[in-house]
Design a protein around this nucleic acid. Sequence first.
RNA 1: GGAAGCGUAUCGAAGUGGUCAUAACGAGCCGCACUCGAAAUGCGGUUGUCCUCCGGGGCACGUGGGUUCGAAUCCCACCGCUUCCGCCA
Length: 425
Amino acid sequence: MLDIRRIREDYEGVKKAVESRGKGDFGIDKVREYDLKRREILATVEKMKNEQKVKSKQIPVMKKNGEDTTQLMAEMKKLSDDIKELDGQVSEAEANLKEALLEVPNTPYKDVQEGLDDSDNVELRRWGEPRKFDFEEKAHWDIGEALDILDFERAAKIAGARFTVYKGLGARLERAVINFMLDLHTEEHGYTEILPPFMVNRMAMTGTGQLPKFEEDMFYIPQKDFFLIPTAEVPVTNLYDNEILSADQLPIYHTAYTPCFRAEAGSAGRDTRGLIRQHQFQKVEMVKFVRPEDSYAELESLTDNAEEVLRKLDIPFRVVRLSTGDLGFSSAMTYDVEVWMPSYGRYVEISSCSNFEDFQARRANIRFRPEEKGKPEFVHTLNGSGLAVGRTVAAILENYQQADGSVVIPEALRGYMGTDRITRK
RNA sequence: GGAAGCGUAUCGAAGUGGUCAUAACGAGCCGCACUCGAAAUGCGGUUGUCCUCCGGGGCACGUGGGUUCGAAUCCCACCGCUUCCGCCA
């Protein structure tokens, strides 16, 4: 959520920044309209409330003195009714304002290049050399089925398309990757592990910006008005909603493993095979709560933490900065880490690291007290995948496949796997 | 899932229809005094938010409604916590 005062003071500037994301109406005109209306009525009704307060204090005094209060009471009744009427109008304008404000995306950071979509993303760096195969390399879904460690057909029987059953060393590899990532982030990068609920309420989903705009992409449980989490970002960021943190608590670094559930109604037909686009996938997430002045430096280190996973696994990747047109709703700036995927012949997103500045903090009301006696300020929140587990498994299978159909386990994972190779039984 | 009780400042807690919510009382924390220093003691301070013609004014006692001239207080719904019962890994 944007600061309403900022919109008041620099309407044209904010409007321009928001609209750099692309064509379309983001409803910022409505925001201004409801804001003006609300303030106008508020000024009137507050004067009336002051009158009500002052006069109603006279009543017990008059009664004590044995005076007649009938006339005054009648006057007060009228005043009370008028206040009720205007209060209703204020709440209506307020509700409209809030609704409109929740629909407005974040303003891109000054360093973000303008663009229409991902074709305008800028590559910042590459690491590692894509391997040259001296045999015909296979896609991870073929490798997985041949090794009997991934079963897409049986997953379809019990759930449907876009689900996967992991089996044997496949299941173990998924688990190994999760533990490897969690250990790396907790032991070497200073994150505290969280294991949150995998379902959240509507307020949490609104706090991080998935609602109200993207309800169609979520799995929903009507019985309890719960949503299956699309990412650990949601429960972990909202951990501190409506709290005032003390300055010495910051920065807070959390990492969490969770499954992620995405309905993604609009994406049928893309990446239909394999582990790349699933209704349920596993992910290790990193979330930071930091002082505003540190957030862009924190974004760099967060991204480096994600890259470190791939460096340790020794898989080639590159890092891109998203253009304004490709930027997520809540983000001010995003780096994607993309892993080399031989079957695609290109780099594929495996992590998305974003600085939300105070956009989520304002929605979820997460603040800190900069000085002992100072006023509370919104924190800045960041998060990034560290990494998407299914895509990491896919990248390992493809990049480490051998001519005989087996897959060598990256050294960093061998302790977790208990073996250095997956072979056909 | 059922029953009962409870949600007031950092914590405990009083207030049960008015002129004590700038929230009693107790504790904590910060400052000052006393002291060589500390403890003890004394004094003072210690919520957030909105609007503002910067004079000031409004709102908030879990949340949202209702009754009333007036609600922390009475009524309704919802949420959360505690205890007991049921069920359950």
